[in-house]
Design a protein around this nucleic acid. Structure first.
Lengths: 323, 323
DNA sequence: AACAGTTACGTAACCCGTAATGATA
DNA sequence: TATCATTACGGGTTACGTAACTGTT
């Protein structure tokens, strides 16, 4: 049994059993992977992948177990390397993060700016993905951290840390009737066409606020892109409902930003990573820069918890920042 | 990084940093090990072992961490192999046990006999060792199970399962004054020279019973070997105090066995193994044959516990067999 | 002087990549 | 027919064992 063989089966599983694309991503050849997998299967005496003729069609039940264990083995070997690097090259390494559009566009830039200034030799890679993809990338080991707003349904191999709460804001043009309204209500919003996130998707809290007031919102345009929302608001299409941190008073000086914290329940942004990830000191520092209450000590306390429900319980006693 | 390299550093650590003896035990050459260790250190960029000139003198702090992680990696790769074997060769494999003299001599033979009859293809290896050594052998991965009576001070990487309670018996020659005594007391025993286990070592409960009665025992002879105790009793050296399961009415027909369960607090025999050990079905079966209350389900429940104190708490509600 | 670890070197195994073959949708 | 996995084969690397060397107790 060789570490490469374990890496191969894990990567093939990550690539939907496509050996060719796996080979491309690992910069090696298909036959090499095929052969090593077969050698491993011969050594273990079990089939990891089920085949129809020459195509890999599925992972056998025992293969699932073996691949899961292999992931753990590879994570631990990565830890060994990381610990060694931490020791003799504390400020070099990599940090791979995947996140949603809103975070990448409106929240992370300032954090990243500080980070790369403090750690110029860290190779930082930021990736934007769909909410469902984020956690998968963490589990597959493709990235270290996922930053997400949807409370992910994750297995216990991941650690989920709440970072901050945030509210929606309502944005309108300066000449809009609502612009001078001191205190908004759902009823008022229901009178106008709305431009916002997809209500059926991540905006269930938006939908619920209207349902609770027994109103049906009039959605003129929906998108996941806050910039687009603002653009359409500026065009006069309707009243915008957008994450508060997505509006910037200097950039959006032609818009009026109205507080909507009392209309909708707050959301929470989380950082997610594998429990068995070795956290290098700059990773702790990144987390702390992203959310100031998440000190190294607090993160370690969370890691000592046995489950994510325990972690959430722990954070119930801690006041999160609100953005 | 190669799995062999990890195996090498772990084994060198297990062999007190003696590379030569490590090489012997692994059936390979010293230079090979030296070179691979050096290659690993070069790759990681850190020293795992500290050296004075050409001798390995100690493990560096970071080396300790790396070796600990390596042990985990190797345990997981072993799990992969075991899981595969379990799948395609359910009744072949190995089972290595280390235990104390008393267990090996008086308790295990019947269990082993059943076991090898049921699993003739399992390579069973039984080893007898000193109490301190037993747990080390488990941690180093040399054996699967340790069976011991001293409640071991073990770290949380081991699982400690209580198997049964046992009492001492008093044995005397047929013509001894105590032979017809219906109910023994400590005072009676204090009147005679005693032959027993080392009171200062594992027999603190023996010592305490006398201390509580404010008597000083007169130890004529002490040994860890129950056979020797019985031999000296037969020679008339004194009154024997010995583990109850070490006396057999047919073999020891020239001795009188007196109940001493009310004089001394009972002891507990434990089975100890690494938490990350993959338990093959015959291992569950062995545990169950050794101690009938330890069903597979109960063992799994214990494994789900986070700590050994939790496990002990769980077993507080369960009545253990008494031998 | 005996022992232990490293260096040097030759052999054998093995991993990998290219090319060819076989199977699948 | 195009895609994909396996088989065949050759080249380069590497791991290992023997032997010689060097440092340690």
């Amino acid at each position: 049994m060789k570490l490469q063989q374990l890496r191969y089966i894990v990567e093939v599983a990550n690539h939907d059993l496509n050996v060719s694309s796996t080979a491309d991503s690992l910069y090696t050849s298909q036959p090499g992977i095929s052969k090593q997998i077969k050698l491993l299967e011969d050594e273990l005496g079990v089939q990891i992948f089920a085949r129809t003729g020459k195509h890999l069609t599925s992972i056998t039940p025992i293969g699932e177990t073996i691949i899961a264990l292999s992931r753990e083995v590879l994570a631990k070997t990565k830890s060994i390397k990381d610990i060694a690097s931490e020791h003799h090259q504390p400020n070099t390494g990599t940090l791979n993060i995947t996140t949603t559009y809103t975070q990448a566009r409106y929240v992370l830039p300032q954090v990243i700016q500080q980070f790369i200034q403090k750690y110029p030799k860290i190779l930082l890679h930021l990736e934007q993905g769909m909410p469902d993809q984020l956690i998968e990338d963490v589990i597959s080991g493709k990235v270290d951290f996922a930053i997400t707003t949807d409370l992910p349904v994750v297995n216990e191999e991941c650690v989920v840390l709440p970072c901050y709460h945030w509210n929606y804001s309502v944005v309108v043009k300066k000449d809009h009737p609502l612009a001078k309204e001191p205190k908004l209500t759902i009823d008022m919003l229901a009178n106008y066409p709305l431009v916002s996130y997809d209500f059926s998707n991540d905006g269930s809290d938006l939908y619920h606020a209207f349902a609770k007031a027994q109103k049906t919102p009039n959605i003129a345009f929906s998108t996941a892109d806050a910039d687009l929302i603002k653009t359409y608001v500026k065009l006069g299409v309707g009243v915008g409902i957008v994450a508060k941190m997505a509006v910037n008073t200097t950039e959006d000086s032609d818009l009026v930003v109205l507080n909507a914290g009392h209309l909708f329940s707050y959301n929470t942004t989380y950082i997610v990573f594998m429990r068995n990830l070795f956290l290098r000191h700059y990773m702790y520092d990144f987390i702390n820069q992203f959310s100031s209450h998440l000190t190294k000590e607090l993160v370690n306390n969370a890691l000592d918890c046995g489950s994510n429900t325990e972690i959430q319980a722990m954070f119930n006693g801690i006041k999160l920042p609100v953005k």
